[in-house]
Design a protein around this nucleic acid. Structure first.
Lengths: 207, 207
DNA sequence: GTCTATAGCTGGATAGAC
DNA sequence: GTCTATCCAGCTATAGAC
């Protein structure tokens, strides 16, 4: 209504944007059902209530759709991981972090595959979409650093543990919790061997 | 030559068997190049020096080819993992085990995907092929048990660590060694938190 | 922007001669 | 068993009317 004349972002752009989002939403619904690689533009158009050529009015190619999905997934990942509460206690924070990560991955396997595995043959995310993903991973690093883990090798070991648990869970016990139950054990193991550096000097009041 | 009349395994069967193996070999060459899902029967036939219908003289369907590949991969996995030397020292044995596993996975990513990830839409290994894979995984369990690790949760954590390192290596640093270098750290972490049970009582003569 | 219609291609799988 | 020829389904993508 009062959306008046913001330069370049008028109702026209809004319409187009929401139409694009509707297509992407339909794409998510399909890949969650038929698998990431099984997406076809025919099905997509039908699901979105339009025809195939209309899809091309909004996306240049099928990969452009994957790219939009990738960007959205990265945003969702950032939001999901930012929602975890920080207490300052290393153990509970690491458990929360890992649980949140696992929940994100498992709640949408297709999204996990798109974002973290490279399973679509000709697809590589655009620089723009990839930027979101990098930002999300940076955040993980920052949070771990706040807990006293700064050694890059430690960070790599941490991500390996996380993806390993998630990967085994998805591949070998889908729908179950055989590996999810091990999250606390994994964190304890990690903490026992790599005690966090002493309090990261919470000296940031001044500024 | 002296292969005479072994009942049911005459030269006819041998010819057929070697023809099948040639097709499977061509399939491996193709998937290593174009990705596991990118395999097409046209390309396969061309690579094998035959025509598409001839492929069907040896395999009922494309999935039957994947199945033969799966069985072969499982056999190779068992052989590769059996080649690692056992010293009885937990640390060096675990490092060797994990290194061997990583080497196997990384040396042929398509094989890794076929065997350990479920990435081909309509494909599930036959009971026969799957049996080989189960045997191979059993062997891992037995070897860990010999080192004093019998808790099934421990085994799951161990496999998660292994696949996590391999997965990160393949996905995020293909051709490099960023995660491979962490194998020793990972083993130390594992050992520090879960010291193996005292010598597995090599007293099993009786029985 | 949205449609109908279709091009153009590639896929797995089969028929039938030899 | 191996071929030529082909079917039929699916796909991405485009042309052109409205």
């Amino acid at each position: 209504m009062v959306k008046a004349a913001a330069p370049g972002v008028d109702w026209r752009e809004d319409r187009r944007r929401s139409a694009r989002e509707a297509i992407v939403a339909a794409a998510w619904a399909l890949v969650e059902q038929d698998g990431l690689a099984g997406l076809s533009l025919r099905d997509l158009a039908q699901r979105a209530g339009i025809t195939t050529p209309t899809v091309y009015a909004y996306f240049d190619s099928k990969n452009a759709i994957y790219d939009a999905m990738f960007g959205q997934a990265a945003e969702q990942f950032l939001a999901h991981m930012s929602a975890v509460e920080v207490t300052g206690n290393a153990r509970s924070d690491l458990v929360a972090e890992l649980s949140q990560f696992a929940e994100f991955c498992i709640s949408n396997v297709a999204r996990y595959q798109l974002l973290f595995q490279r399973t679509i043959p000709g697809f590589a995310p655009s620089a723009d979409s990839y930027g979101h993903a990098v930002a999300a991973l940076d955040r993980v690093q920052v949070r771990l650093a706040a807990l006293g883990f700064t050694d890059p090798r430690l960070l790599d070991l941490w991500t390996a543990m996380g993806t390993g648990l998630v990967d085994q869970q998805i591949s070998n016990d889908p729908g179950g919790d055989r590996w999810l139950r091990l999250i606390e054990d994994a964190v304890d193991m990690f903490l026992a061997h790599f005690p966090p550096e002493p309090p990261p000097k919470r000296k940031r009041a001044k500024r």
